[in-house]
Amino acid sequence: MSVVVRTVTRLLLPAVVMFGAYVVMHGHLTPGGGFQGGAVIASAVALVVVAFGARRIRRHKETLSVLEDVGALAFVVLAFLGIGGTFFYNSLAGTGGLFGQEVAMGANPGALNTGGMLPLMNWAVGLKVLAGLGSIVLLMGLLGGDDDR
């Protein structure tokens, strides 16, 4: 692709990744969550594939595949952590520790440090989706006769 596209991609890339991370992290407070945020970050992979060509990042294919496994595994393990009560039981909510702050009643902007297991699960899903969709985009780029650049 042209220099314009490459430069704009370089500029946009941090912003896209940061916005995706924001959506993942605030999944328990605002619309969006792990899947949506992960998809936004995966669109950064798409941007790189379009601007620089899939071959430039093909060595990361294996990394993405491992990350996808880790994300899925983390989700199931987090669900298992609740097994003292039931599977998927939110054992962190309201305990005061990590993400354990009590949720304030009434209208309020929301505190990031709430939700118990939910933010952690959002992260796991985010990782799974960004790696999964990322590898799909990358594979499409690699298979699709990506010849210019």
Binding site: G82, G85, T86, F87, F88, Y89, N90
Partner: peptide, 8 residues
Amino acid sequence: YTLGADTP
């Protein structure tokens, strides 16, 4: 079995 409840 109830998922996510206090008891199954």
